[in-house]
Design a protein around this nucleic acid. Sequence first.
DNA 1: CGGAATCCTCTTCGATACTG
DNA 2: CAGTATCGAAGAGGATTCCG
Lengths: 216, 216
Amino acid sequence: MARSYEQGCHIARALDVLGERWTLLIARELVAGSRRYSDLLEALPGIGTSLLAARLKHLEQHRVVRQVTLPGPGRTAAYALGERGEALMPVLAALSEWGGGLPDTPPGYADNPVWSIIALRLRACAEAASFGILTELTVGGTTVWLQGDGERVRMETGPAPTNPGLRLTCAKDTFYALVKGRATVEDALSSGQLAIDGEAADGQHFFDLFRLPRAA
Amino acid sequence: MARSYEQGCHIARALDVLGERWTLLIARELVAGSRRYSDLLEALPGIGTSLLAARLKHLEQHRVVRQVTLPGPGRTAAYALGERGEALMPVLAALSEWGGGLPDTPPGYADNPVWSIIALRLRACAEAASFGILTELTVGGTTVWLQGDGERVRMETGPAPTNPGLRLTCAKDTFYALVKGRATVEDALSSGQLAIDGEAADGQHFFDLFRLPRAA
DNA sequence: CGGAATCCTCTTCGATACTG
DNA sequence: CAGTATCGAAGAGGATTCCG
């Protein structure tokens, strides 16, 4: 059993489950879809193999994470968010928002386009669930797909499983600027850094739902 | 310098500052108003004096916490939330909400009415700032006062500094039930477990703003 | 080969004692 | 009252080995 603060306070109880090192970063990775053990090891350099196994076991016990079997050949085992993991979105969203207010990232820090995609997705926890169009999003060479089902947004890494209704492609730095609110969709489109493949109206709807900045 | 994940991701950057043991619980304490060093030691049993000093120093550097001088005789030094600490409210609110969904608290855990008051206050980050009436709230013998100034809610532990416009008194277990959504204001009032001292309309307005459950 | 337990070293934590 | 100093215990990081 993990160390506990032994306080009835809901914040303390949450931190009993989530507060140890690496725990919330594992959850962050799973926001972008299911991941194999080795995917997580790669995404979290420094974690150490036994610690990752211990954290996953702990999170599984608390239904933050659940094991899934990946489709396709190989029947690979992987991890995805469980019920309590889905409920973590607001926590991760608040942390992401707060972290965005910190001074600029020091040099040498790792950089992964999927983190910005996750930040985008976390900003629209509830509203974006209504966006039912299968959308493929490519940022700086990283591709994910997402689709709302009315209740939540499903998101996975990799190309869309069927032909997407909307395909968005964006240069990495432009996407960072969009998510940080330092550039507008119109500028990104006209400079060719952002491209919409599909109905233009669907693209605009996507930008609105995920609160990307529009021209002033 | 504390250990860092060295990832540009905003969530990881936030956790670099907030993710170590005890850090967010220090912030939680300060949501209920300024605290002296010894107050914090008492509120966080197990923390160890050097660790508390180290955490406070670290949080001060990141402007999550700032030092203040308490009014009144003694000119006691104390700690309060800094700019980034005020911005932490949504993070703490999300954690509190998530922690409320966990299974019931195991026996033996510490219990403090102020934690429920904090949970209440965190639920109404923005809206409640408009509640300008100086309000004194007593739950199970713990008294705090709070007042909105249009921008944020100010809250301090202890009796109100001047004559409050509204005074609410509630039995501990009833207040817990109200905050958890397991009881209604009307039931609590009619059973005498909750009492309003002041304009009845102000009390109702307070309950609405802080989303206490009303009769079905 | 991917998934995980073992071993060892280093860092962090917790408790007590001590100081301005 | 507000911290610093110290030290044993627990946790984390890295390499290697084991299992399927």
